[in-house]
Amino acid sequence: MLAETYRKGRAALEDFFADTPSGEKRRDEVQKILDDADCRFNAHGVEMNQRYTSSAVLEDGPMLAFVHDHEFVHQPLAHPGAVVPRVWLKQDGRRVSTIDLVGRGRFTLLTGIGGAPWREAVRVVGEELGLQIAVHGIGAGQDLADPTAELRAALHSILGTPARDAPYAQNAPARGELLTEGA
């Protein structure tokens, strides 16, 4: 019985890979199944396109509308209330994702060149409120490099929460008094 099952399976595989009309038909059928299932395997929008509104989020104008299907296509957005955009950075020659820099039970500041006022503001807020706030400088001469300039093109500074969303983001040079006003 086992030998017969093996023989049939082996014959089906040989037919699948054969340069014959039958093999081509089988390959087309498998490709159609994979194409139909693509949204279940690659629905990155479901995982990455969350957007939040609450009193803990400092609004910066209206949230941009989705351009593509919001469940299927991941659409990174550097806006308060959105998940921190995933951008590949470099640190000591290895790739590091912005997603891996934030969360982990603490607040995180991602800032670029000229982010010294932000660093000082989160230091003060962290001391006053007893919060651990990680800080990562991104750009030339900083802790991490942005080789594709994706993050630099998106914004100047992001404050990420332990849940990896961004209650505050700024597209202009730092004004640390904005962050410390409500502390």
Rank of each mutant, 00 (worst) to 15 (best):
F72S: 09
T111S: 04
A43T: 13
V57R: 01
F72P: 03
V125A: 15
A145H: 05
G141R: 01
Q31I: 09
W88F: 03
S55F: 06
E14R: 05
V57K: 00
G81N: 05
E177Q: 06
H156S: 09
L77W: 03
E181V: 11
R10Q: 13
R27K: 03
T5N: 05
V122N: 02
G93H: 14
G126T: 10
G182C: 06
A163R: 09
H79T: 03
H136G: 08
R40Q: 11
I99T: 13
V125W: 12
L178P: 02
L109N: 06
D35R: 13
Q75P: 05
E150C: 12
I113A: 10
L58E: 11
R51H: 11
A166V: 06
K32P: 01
T161G: 14
Q142N: 06
I138Y: 02
E14Y: 10
A145L: 15
D15Y: 04
T111V: 03
A145I: 14
I33P: 04
E29D: 13
V102K: 01
A78D: 08
G139C: 07
G103V: 10
E14I: 08
E47Q: 10
G160T: 07
I138N: 07
D92S: 04
F17S: 12
N42I: 00
R40H: 15
A174P: 09
Y168L: 12
I138K: 02
I99P: 00
A145F: 09
V122A: 00
M63P: 04
G45Y: 00
G176E: 03
V124N: 05
S55Q: 12
T20V: 10
E150G: 07
I33Y: 09
L155W: 11
Q31K: 13
S22R: 13
K90E: 15
K32L: 12
D92Y: 00
V83L: 13
R27M: 09
A149Q: 11
R40Y: 13
G114P: 04
E47R: 07
E14D: 08
I133M: 02
Q170R: 12
E71N: 08
S157K: 01
T98C: 05
G114W: 08
V57T: 08
V46A: 07
T5S: 04
R175W: 03
A154I: 12
V67Y: 04
D19K: 15
K25N: 06
Q75A: 11
P117M: 06
T108C: 01
E4P: 05
T161A: 15
S22G: 05
A116F: 08
G126N: 05
V84H: 10
A140G: 12
G103N: 10
K90H: 09
Q31V: 13
D100F: 05
E71G: 13
A154W: 01
I113M: 05
P173T: 07
K25T: 09
V46T: 08
L129M: 15
I99N: 05
L64Y: 10
C39L: 08
Y168M: 13
E71M: 12
Q132F: 03
L89E: 09
Y6K: 02
T108P: 01
V84W: 07
P85G: 04
R27V: 11
N49E: 04
V102L: 02
A56R: 13
W88R: 10
F72W: 00
E150A: 14
F72V: 09
T161D: 15
L109F: 11
E59D: 15
G61L: 12
P167G: 07
V96G: 00
E71Q: 10
L151E: 02
A134D: 07
D146R: 04
I113L: 09
M1R: 10
M63G: 11
E4L: 06
